[in-house]
Design a protein around this nucleic acid. Sequence first.
DNA 1: CCAAGCATTTGGTCGTACCTAAATTAGCAT
DNA 2: ATGCTAATTTAGGTACGACCAAATGCTTGG
Lengths: 257, 257
Amino acid sequence: MAAQPSSETGPRRHAVQLSPMQVPKASDVLADDLRERIIRGEFPEGTALPPERELVSQTKMSRTTVREALRILEVQGLVRVKTGRSGGAFVYRPGKDTVADSVNLLIRGRQIRIPALLETREAIEPYCAQLAARNRTDEDLERLDQANTDIAADGTLADFLQANVDWHIAVAAASHNELLTGIMLALSRSIYDATDNQGFVDAEVRRTTLRAHRTVTKAIRDQDPDAANRRMSRHVHTYAEAVLEVEDRTTVTVPET
Amino acid sequence: MAAQPSSETGPRRHAVQLSPMQVPKASDVLADDLRERIIRGEFPEGTALPPERELVSQTKMSRTTVREALRILEVQGLVRVKTGRSGGAFVYRPGKDTVADSVNLLIRGRQIRIPALLETREAIEPYCAQLAARNRTDEDLERLDQANTDIAADGTLADFLQANVDWHIAVAAASHNELLTGIMLALSRSIYDATDNQGFVDAEVRRTTLRAHRTVTKAIRDQDPDAANRRMSRHVHTYAEAVLEVEDRTTVTVPET
DNA sequence: CCAAGCATTTGGTCGTACCTAAATTAGCAT
DNA sequence: ATGCTAATTTAGGTACGACCAAATGCTTGG
């Protein structure tokens, strides 16, 4: 059909030059369009997109295509699909969960080591605490205190770790920076998973943690950004060192392949 | 068919109690399985999954289902699909791009403001510089120098911004922490987009930027983590203030809906 | 008035047919 | 023999059409 350039010496019938020709997939086109509208806020959160068959008749695409488009958006966390009558695809603004998921994928797939996780945390959390000290509201303080009492309560290991994570997240939330909060959320989940069956958390660690949290919380309450930063920095650094020490002792077994 | 509990006063035929029953979607099951295998490294990067029709006969699922599963993995960046003979789904390890994409979604969808972006950068980059000073190799230094000469060259605005981003990414890369690098990659892209048509970059800004980059680069070369952290902190903070100043002046027009 | 059962809406799965893209192979002309 | 063209083959992309399963709403009988 088309005249190919064949080679430099070939007889060029026409001087037309075409780029390699990119034919986007129909489902991507639909997905891109819907995504753009969702992000622009054209549909408020929670509204239902038209049912699949309706979209079919509107777009003149096949149902297969429409469904693939919806699936793409679902994976990206832009819609949630419910079955049944008055079901359908409901619009959600992209959330921190999506970021957390992809970070987790990165971590697991690239075999990111715990040290790297802890380093990242050391980078982010002190600044979070600093911002928290500047921007915290009274509700933020309540959440922090709640997490601290949960930590103080002698519960199971899982309880302790959860309360621990809650506190760190609360600090991030108190920074009132959604992006930082999202990243911390992702990190926390992964650090939790990595630290879970690492059983180095004894009573001593718990007490130390609680004390550190209290001092940081106080700095945040007193709106002392500098102290908050410094103390948090110290805390996460100490924690990291403790974890790494255990790591080194346990690194005999590398579960690979 | 099934005996419903109907109400508390109803005649319970049997004492059996069932949880609300969650039936995972077939495509999700397949996707989960494949994802798990990919992440575990069962298939080395670049290998082709069996063709769709082959998967159909293996899994006894319909082609629709198989295709949806593949689409999910594609969106998550775990496979790339090529058409044509000897095409198919090729395995890729999850990369930083995926994280960058989701961060961008979060930023655009949640209308994250530039200040929040800059704050996040202020949190991460100094520590990146610190790690870079500790872990940098000679190749890292080469990339940094290259970016700096690119910045020095009097090019277009886009050229300058690109070179600027390259340098910051190079710093992150020199930290040899893939996670931090991934996050910085995502941030840079977004900051680039946000700063692009903000036209506050004049010759003065360029000169200041170059000077700051040089001092940080020197600290990294000299393997002085403390200085690297301090100087980078100063640099990004200054830059942030400059951007915010322009922001305040320009905030007259808020292009919304 | 209320609950059991039916009907409807809407997503989920399946199967088949056909189109299109890309690589290989066969064929034809020089 | 060479080199271009055309057919073939393999794979994904799209389109219908049918039917299943779940959730809700509606109706009807008590």
